[in-house]
Design a protein around this nucleic acid. Structure first.
Lengths: 114, 114
DNA sequence: TGATCATATCTGCCAAAGCGAATATAGTCT
DNA sequence: AGACTATATTCGCTTTGGCAGATATGATCA
């Protein structure tokens, strides 16, 4: 666990939006994320790559879909930091509308064995 | 409290070193900080300015010296985030040697009414 | 094998952030 | 006022980081 990468990964708003959504929903796939955030897919993929390289997120492939979740090996202090971030950001307008778009999204992929 | 500025302020290692020292010691002046970190004084002043503008630190002048402490108005979630940061970074070699240099520093300014 | 869908990476560009060195400001003391 | 000390800011430069748009990869199914 490299704290430099960890804190850098929190310094971007798009990445915080991704993390908050995943913390609220356990596990989400790329198509859910970029539609909830309403940003281009390559943009979300790049930020997911940053979060993967920082070992903050883990990924899992299921057919065509790739699901992202918080890395279960994240140290306790780092996980608690993420929880505090949700406290600080989760109720802001921008983050709430992400959740709303996700809830209203049609054709969300169905996990067969999540 | 702007979370963008808050998380950006944590994304730099020098600023984390400053924050960890201050969290461990309540209040420190600029000369203690730049000597403990063993970096040029203007560098520490620039980073302190970033932390001030992010409203993470508050300052207090006492004669020639300027003392910095955690902004007492910091929201709870942000303060807890800082505490988790100390958990994650405080025991790393780099941060420990900062503390050591501070302890061994001669002529530390004496607070008359801290 | 070729078509299709989901995701990832690359390219070229621009803006922001960090640095060292020099300089400015602000307070204190004689 | 002038000298001195502590701290802050500016300047010129280089590096890094983010973006959009285009393209590549990888899995699935006909």
């Amino acid at each position: 666990m490299n704290e430099q990468f960890f804190f850098e990964s929190l310094s971007d708003e798009t990445r915080r939006r991704i993390l908050v959504l995943i913390l609220k929903h356990e596990e989400l796939c790329v198509c859910e994320l970029f539609q909830a955030l309403d940003v281009p897919q390559p943009k979300v993929s790049r930020h997911l790559a940053v979060l993967r390289e920082a070992v903050v997120l883990a990924q899992r492939r299921e057919g065509l879909w790739v699901y992202y979740r918080i890395n279960p090996l994240l140290p306790t202090w780092a996980y608690r930091t993420l929880e505090q971030m949700v406290q600080g950001c989760g109720d802001l307008e921008l983050f709430l509308s992400d959740s709303k778009r996700l809830d209203e999204m049609p054709n969300r992929p169905v996990r067969c064995c999540a």
